[in-house]
């Protein structure tokens, strides 16, 4: 082995150690643990597929999968749609003003999720919260966003739409990379605004759109901090609305670190991993059909 090769491995050393100790090792360990029963006391007992069978019959798993899917299906299109509208408007004004607005849209993303959860507990408060006071201005009697099981998830989606900053920045950056000549050519060909958007803008930013769909989906499936802050950890509060805010990672966390059911929690983690992998795979497959990659190669 040459001197430079030896040095290359010196530079790789932190990554290699981290990969083994904190990534690959734990991944395999969690797969193994998912076939055991383990509560930290004693040693893990092999139970075959019991945890996976239990998962299939556990009504709370079904509940949390439903809640997580509900949120993801609403959050992803709404967040990206709104962010796209904001980015398109930013792209029309550009200049200094666009920078200022972009900063303002990103500011909520600098608010720690626990604080976001707290803030929206107040804003969405059913009796006196600002959202309902605002609705009352139009004569609308707002729902009990934080206690009525039917309205908890819509409230969480509403809260999530405050956090559009990163998605907006990514889409805005993509829009700015669309070459102006394309629009000029489209104008000469007599394309209207909608045709220019469909024929030029959308294909040219399809890579970025595809990317924000994937990262927003993956993040949605792992929603935890805000929801845990608002609806869990306080026993009195928890009883009133049942499982309507039970998201998948919240349930996993409870099983692993409140009930110390490490084997079951590991099985749940692998289910989530498999779901994320499958969804991402499908999105990539579908995306490849629609994404116009020349936009990337510029």
């Amino acid at each position: 082995m040459g001197v430079s090769t030896r040095w290359a491995y010196v530079f790789m050393l932190p990554w290699l150690l981290g990969l083994v100790i904190f990534q690959a090792g734990p991944m395999i360990a969690s797969l193994v643990l998912s076939f055991t029963e383990y509560d930290l006391i004693g040693s893990p007992a092999f139970v075959g597929f019991d945890n996976y069978r239990r998962m299939m019959e556990d009504p709370q798993v079904a509940r949390s999968v439903y809640n997580t899917a509900y949120y993801t299906v609403l959050h992803v299109p709404l967040a990206i749609g709104l962010a796209l509208v904001l980015a398109l408007m930013l792209n029309r004004i550009t200049g200094r003003a666009a920078g200022v607005f972009r900063t303002i849209f990103y500011l909520p993303s600098m608010t720690p999720y626990v604080a976001v959860g707290v803030l929206f507990l107040f804003l969405l408060n059913g009796q006196a919260g600002v959202v309902n006071q605002f609705l009352a201005l139009f004569g609308i009697d707002g729902p009990q966003w934080t206690t009525d099981p039917a309205w908890i998830k819509p409230g969480i989606v509403l809260m999530s739409l405050w956090n559009l900053g990163s998605t907006t920045i990514i889409l805005f950056a993509a829009l700015r990379n669309v070459p102006g000549e394309l629009y000029e050519a489209a104008l000469i060909d007599g394309a209207g605004p909608w045709q220019r958007f469909r024929g030029v803008t959308l294909p040219m930013i399809s890579g970025a759109l595809f990317f924000v769909v994937i990262i927003n989906t993956i993040a949605s499936l792992q929603l935890f901090d805000q929801v845990y802050t608002m609806f869990f950890g306080n026993q009195i509060a928890q009883q009133s609305y049942g499982d309507s805010a039970l998201f998948f990672v919240v349930y996993l966390f409870q099983q692993g670190f409140q009930f110390l059911d490490m084997g079951y929690a590991s099985a749940l983690a692998w289910l989530l991993f498999a779901v994320i992998a499958v969804i991402t795979f499908v999105q990539v497959k579908v995306g490849n059909r629609f994404v116009y990659y020349e936009a990337e190669e510029r």
Binding site: A8, Q23, G25, P26, M27, A265
Partner: peptide, 27 residues
């Protein structure tokens, strides 16, 4: 550097970027 295994190691970098942190939580 150019060294044997570089591409494989770099693939591990890209791979762990996709790995949700929750999977490794318990171990």
């Amino acid at each position: 550097f150019r060294f044997p295994g570089r591409n494989l190691l770099f693939a591990s970098v890209l791979g762990t970027m996709m790995l949700p942190a929750v999977v490794t939580l318990v171990p």
